[in-house]
Simulated assay, not measured.
Amino acid sequence: MAKWRIIGVFALLVIGAGWHITKPAPLPSDALDGLTGDPVNGELVFAAAGCASCHTSEDGPPTLLSGGRTFASDFGTFVAPNISSDPEHGVGAWSDLALASAIMRGVGADGEHLYPAFPYTSYHKAELGDIVDLIAYLRTLPPSDEPNAPNDLAFPFNQRIALGPWKFLFVNSDWVLQDAATPELMRGRYLVEALGHCTECHTPRNALGGLDTARWMGGAPHPSDEGRIPNITTAALSWSERDIAEYLKSGFTPDFDSAGGEMAEVVKNTGQLTDDDRAAIAAYLKAIPPVAE
């Protein structure tokens, strides 16, 4: 009897420790103390982070964040939520702290885990000041009363409790490019690995949906099973840094082709960045290890 009591106590301790490690962890209550949002810089962060690409309707203006776009995946279909300033259907009633916790920690206003279809797995590397600036800019955008639609996920993927262990396994604050020896490379790393979340599409995933960092930016199957997202390491992309920067500005390739599909949406965002930022992204892509096709 004593043996089973010991086993029971041990099991409870393991479960308790697991819950403590994997429970939703919003930002501390004082995380934003002393920070004042700058909507001018926030507009640049908005473009770098690609917010409009997911949270606007396909035929809507780029500042009406009404949500509704669908994203197919191996785990079901996710629907982008309304993140406009509407207090009922959007996030207008959320505090700045709640919004920052959602963006950087993947924790909703009610304390629930958010699905990583929202790329907080990259955004958590962002500077808190940039996120506060982004929120200040979001506050200036028009409201939308478009109701949110539910995700279409099968069991067990519709159980948010599983996201705690997933975050524990796959949300990592370490930079993949460890040796960013120049300010340009540091900026490029920040734009690609954090704000731009380029890796969320261009890096393959393991069976649990975590990024395979050993094949960083080495291309991946398209989530909709239509084609493949390209390898953009030097093993497959021979463009010069100037070619890459021009593509991110205009959408034109060195062969006079133009960006299409989702990448056309990305270029709308990167085209709003500075020439220096686009050059930094190009330098980063030349610095990461090549991944064989």
Rank of each mutant, 00 (worst) to 15 (best):
R187S: 13
R187Q: 11
G188W: 03
G188Y: 02
R189G: 01
R189M: 00
Y190K: 01
Y190E: 01
Y190T: 00
L191W: 01
L191H: 04
L191G: 02
V192G: 00
V192D: 00
E193R: 00
A194S: 07
L195D: 01
L195W: 00
G196Y: 09
G196R: 10
G196F: 02
G196D: 11
H197T: 02
T199N: 03
C201M: 05
C201T: 10
H202E: 04
H202M: 01
H202F: 05
P204A: 03
P204W: 06
R205Y: 12
A207P: 01
L208M: 13
L208C: 04
G209D: 11
G209S: 06
G210C: 10
G210R: 04
L211D: 05
L211K: 15
D212H: 03
D212A: 11
A214H: 08
A214S: 14
A214D: 11
R215M: 10
R215Q: 14
G218S: 09
G219I: 06
G219Q: 09
G219P: 07
A220S: 12
P221W: 08
P221M: 09
P221K: 12
P223S: 12
P223I: 07
P223A: 07
P223D: 03
S224Q: 12
S224G: 07
E226S: 14
E226N: 13
E226F: 14
G227N: 05
G227V: 08
R228C: 08
I229D: 13
I229R: 15
I229P: 10
I229A: 06
N231M: 10
N231F: 11
N231H: 09
I232T: 05
I232M: 05
I232V: 12
I232H: 08
T233C: 07
T233Y: 02
T234S: 13
T234G: 08
T234P: 04
A235Q: 04
A236G: 15
A236E: 15
L237C: 10
S238K: 08
S238F: 05
W239T: 08
S240M: 09
S240P: 06
S240K: 06
E241S: 14
E241F: 07
E241Q: 15
R242L: 12
R242I: 10
D243Y: 02
D243C: 05
A245W: 10
E246C: 06
E246V: 14
E246H: 14
Y247G: 07
Y247F: 15
Y247M: 13
